[in-house]
């Protein structure tokens, strides 16, 4: 019984459910303003209260979940594809190719992701596709490293040597022997990159460099309403943040659970 896995998966499922059914669950439209209802605290009418333009914060959060989750999953998919390809190619071919690829990884790692993202997004227009591109560009190195080291150890294992001795071509070895065996660690890395991407999107949108405000995401809801905190309106910032935390926590639990389930021998340091 893997409690972390189930707890994480259940909560994540709930958030996905909310996001998918957003139009049926929300009684208010996320961008409809109603100045008469501005700044209302949480109530039965408005579960999470309303913001300074009278928009329903609950509806905005539910619609924001669509953007934030979409970014999280899309970035994880992109980073996993890039990371697996780079890791497999580098680890399998070794030599110059491996060296060049790993130096690229080192270069990207010599700047904190968030700084590289800020620099790039400031010079290209903020928007959902640029955010995706930037988070994918800065996020694949961890997966590549994991897959590469896995490939390095796999390629000296007997079953790979046997296949090679039987005359299997490189492409066959990579696709049918190495790829299936690196998928488990890659999946774990992908889960953690969902969490990273959700946090990074929220941070970038919060700095005004991510998703533009007309499309609510968890980060830009908080960015827009930040000033209201000073006059005591806490709910517009509090609730989207709680959603980010619980979703990221659920994804991290899922990742930890998957790690325990898929790589039982490799418990090691549980950090």
């Amino acid at each position: 019984m893997n409690k972390k896995l189930y707890a994480g998966a259940c909560f994540l499922f709930l958030v996905v459910f909310l996001a998918v059914l957003a139009p049926y669950l929300c009684t208010y439209h996320p961008v409809d303003t109603s100045l008469g209802d501005a700044g209302l605290p949480p109530s039965r009418e408005h579960l999470f209260g309303t913001d300074d333009l009278g928009r329903d914060v609950f509806s905005r959060c539910v619609y924001g979940a669509r953007v934030s989750l979409a970014v999280g999953f899309a970035v994880a998919l992109l980073t996993t594809v890039i990371g697996v390809v780079v890791g497999l190619v580098g680890g399998y071919s070794g030599g110059l190719i491996d060296n060049v690829l790993m130096r690229v990884v080192d270069t990207l790692n010599s700047l904190p992701n968030i700084i590289l993202s800020i620099v790039i997004l400031a010079f290209f227009k903020p928007g959902i596709f640029n955010v995706l591109a930037v988070l994918a560009l800065t996020g694949w190195t961890a997966t590549a490293r994991v897959v590469r080291s896995e490939t390095l150890s796999l390629k000296t294992r007997e079953f790979v040597l046997a296949a090679r001795a039987l005359g299997a071509p490189d492409a066959y070895l990579i696709f049918f022997h190495l790829l299936p065996n690196v998928l488990a660690p890659a999946l774990v890395a992908a889960t953690f990159s969902v969490a990273h991407a959700i946090l990074a999107e929220a941070t970038l949108s919060f700095l005004g460099l991510g998703i533009p405000p007309h499309e609510p995401s968890w980060g830009n809801i908080m960015m827009e309403e930040m000033d209201d905190l000073l006059v005591g309106v806490w709910w517009t910032v509090f609730f989207p943040g709680v959603l980010v935390i619980s979703t990221v926590l659920a994804v991290n639990f899922l990742g930890e659970g998957l790690k325990d389930a898929l790589e039982p021998g490799r418990g090691g340091k549980n950090v």
Partner: peptide, 9 residues
């Protein structure tokens, strides 16, 4: 799992 800016706010 907490965004640092949220904690700050």
């Amino acid at each position: 799992s907490t965004p640092n800016f949220w904690l700050a706010l």
